[in-house]
């Protein structure tokens, strides 16, 4: 039993850590479609948010660094929501219960479209989680963030877009 368990654990090591890495999506490209239901069954569609600046954040409960970005994102939306900033999460290949726990534990205030099979994320060219995209008011990708969103990124990249 001990050996079987150990071997299984070693086998799981093959699951690559999805650290932020690699270039992928070109900025100034129209954002890919993003529509679906969140964990509460509410429908969201990025197309309906045109005119707002949207931070699309791809995360998963099994991703440690994803926890770090919940507070900066929630705070940013709270602070800049009236100026047209919207945060829309994409919950990538996750277990619904684990995702729900993650939201509760981290106090996420923004909704997340469930991407159970990862198809939405792949359409967006996601290379790992967390990964975020800044979508401008015209629906074009203005910036891509590999790794957790930080207060600095919000201040240096997101806020100027909101104010611009």
């Amino acid at each position: 039993m001990r050996r079987r368990g150990a071997r299984a654990a070693v086998a799981f090591v093959a699951v690559a850590a999805l650290s932020a890495c690699g270039p992928a999506v070109d900025v100034s490209q129209p954002a890919a479609p993003l529509a679906g239901v969140d964990m509460d069954g509410r429908h969201h569609d990025l197309a309906e948010l045109q005119g707002s600046v949207v931070v699309v954040s791809v995360w998963a409960s099994w991703c440690g660094p994803c926890r770090e970005e919940v507070q900066p994102l929630s705070q940013a939306e709270q602070e800049w929501g009236d100026d047209g900033l919207v945060v829309l999460g994409v919950n990538f290949k996750d277990h619904p219960d684990a995702a729900q726990r993650f939201v509760e534990e981290e106090g996420a205030t923004f909704p997340s479209v469930v991407d159970a099979d990862g198809a939405i994320s792949i359409d967006w060219g996601v290379t790992g989680v967390p990964q975020s995209f800044l979508v401008d008011r015209e629906g074009e990708i203005a910036a891509v963030r590999f790794g957790p969103v930080t207060d600095e990124w919000i201040a240096d990249v997101v806020v100027p877009e909101v104010q611009g």
Partner: peptide
Amino acid sequence: RCPSCVGESVADSSAPVAAAMRAVIDE
């Protein structure tokens, strides 16, 4: 190429992104 791996193809990688890419290929 698996975009979240080092030196692995999408076929051989067990990374979640590679699994999602395989699902997209099937679809």
